[in-house]
Write a protein that binds this DNA or RNA. Structure first.
Lengths: 152, 152
DNA sequence: CTCTAATTGATACTTGATATCAATAAATGT
DNA sequence: ACATTTATTGATATCAAGTATCAATTAGAG
């Protein structure tokens, strides 16, 4: 019943679709295959550009199925299109570089502990949460040669 | 230099615009006035509907100025248009009801403490963060008369 | 009251994403 | 292998949120 897990700890995308009763087709394999090739988070438009032979509608539909299946995380960026990343089995959160947009992950048990302590403070049932940390990543810090590093 | 604070702890919206060197106009007053009337978070389209005599472009522009000024928080909702709420002086986070979309606030010092402990784990400089808790609010819990409450 | 620059808002456009629907392909039964 | 049924595809139209354009208007300084 549980979705297939591959060694890396992520969910196998094709199987995730099959588990939902969806057919295994060439178009869907192209989409899941491309996503698995990518290391970084991506947008729907990225995939459309990478897969010119797959229709936009199919790309968007497949992404939606994968999100519904829990195999992809949808990351709402402040402006523009949301990004997607392969969901790991263990719950985690994301870092987003405000300069280059690179998305990373982290997991931290304290975050979950905080949630539990918030239950009394919040007027309703907690059904989920989302946390993003905005950073300037190592690479981008390297780019700006010591600018703004000294003054406060 | 600091933006004017009114008793409630929120930033005065008209003054926030003036502090940025923007003129005080009838259209902008209509927008800020309407926002201040609202208790809840709102979308840009909400404002446009409430203010049919103010052009869409002006509504969107004014919201953008207010966000830039730090007088409004922009809350990216998972699907659809982002919502905005008046920024309080003290840092806080939001709860979003997954049934009715109602937005609430909470503040919790532990969240900030978690962030500090994450600094070692994260490869870059933390420049900001965002946390949203998804809930079923009290009102919506009342609606669904005990459904799904018993089974596991 | 005049002048200048900021502002406005109708309109057209851009972007991201979904709906439609005839053509196609996958699974199933024989 | 073939026919049948049903899911899937993708070109196209459409939708929704938001931005760019630009002539007409208005605020504020002098």
């Amino acid at each position: 019943m549980a979705a297939s897990i591959v060694e890396s700890g992520s969910i196998d995308l094709s199987n995730a679709l099959e588990d939902r009763g969806l057919r295994r087709t060439a178009a869907r394999s192209a989409v899941t295959g491309r996503i698995e090739q990518l290391n970084d988070a991506f947008t729907a438009e990225n995939l459309c550009r990478d897969l010119p032979d797959v229709g936009r509608a199919t790309v968007y539909r497949t992404i939606r199925h994968l999100v519904d299946a829990g195999a992809l995380c949808k990351l709402p960026i402040l402006d523009g299109a949301p990004m997607y990343s392969i969901a790991r089995v263990d719950h985690h959160h994301h870092t987003i570089c405000v300069r280059c947009g690179a998305v990373g992950e982290f997991r931290h048990s304290t975050v979950e502990r905080v949630l539990r302590s918030l239950e009394k403070e919040i007027d309703g049932d907690i059904v989920g949460h989302r946390m993003e940390i905005f950073i300037t990543c190592r690479a981008c810090l390297g780019d700006q040669h010591a600018i703004k590093k000294t003054s406060r």
